[in-house]
Nucleic acid binder design. Structure first.
Length: 113
DNA sequence: CTCGTGACTTACG
DNA sequence: ACGTAAGCCACGA
């Protein structure tokens, strides 16, 4: 099912956002992806814009924006309900080990796009 | 078109 | 490890 089909009349997404969301949907639970890798998979270097796209994600949790972390393994930010606290909670619930606001990328980074 | 704003990243002290 | 600075790019006003 295409994401655009879930939108009500008011929500709008740009092509860029759509691309990012479609890629992010492929990340399974128990795994994470970095903003950088996400941008790379989208054939762009707009790391920062990826963050912006997440901040405006109208499809949560259909699009698992909580599985996106910083390139060094830090949790990063989260503007959804409960902020970062909730993000960590959801990750743990999915089996991702989070300690001191960090994640072991060697272990949890999703690689096969 | 120009500008300011980020859920970012890398480099340097 | 931590803070700062610069580079980055999509987006909305």
């Amino acid at each position: 099912m295409l994401l655009v089909e879930l939108m009500n009349g008011k929500t709008t997404v740009t092509n860029f956002q759509n691309k990012i969301y479609e890629l992010l949907k492929k990340v399974p639970k128990g795994k994470v992806i970095t903003y950088k890798e996400l941008a790379k998979a989208a054939k762009t270097k707009a790391y920062r814009a990826v963050g912006t796209a997440m901040a405006r994600n109208p499809f949560a949790p259909r699009v698992p924006c909580h599985r996106v972390v910083n390139s060094d393994g830090k949790i990063g930010n989260y503007s959804g309900k409960g902020r970062v606290k909730t993000k960590i909670k959801m990750l743990r619930k999915e089996g991702v080990e989070v300690k001191n606001n960090r994640i072991d990328l060697k272990k949890y980074l999703f690689r096969n796009f």
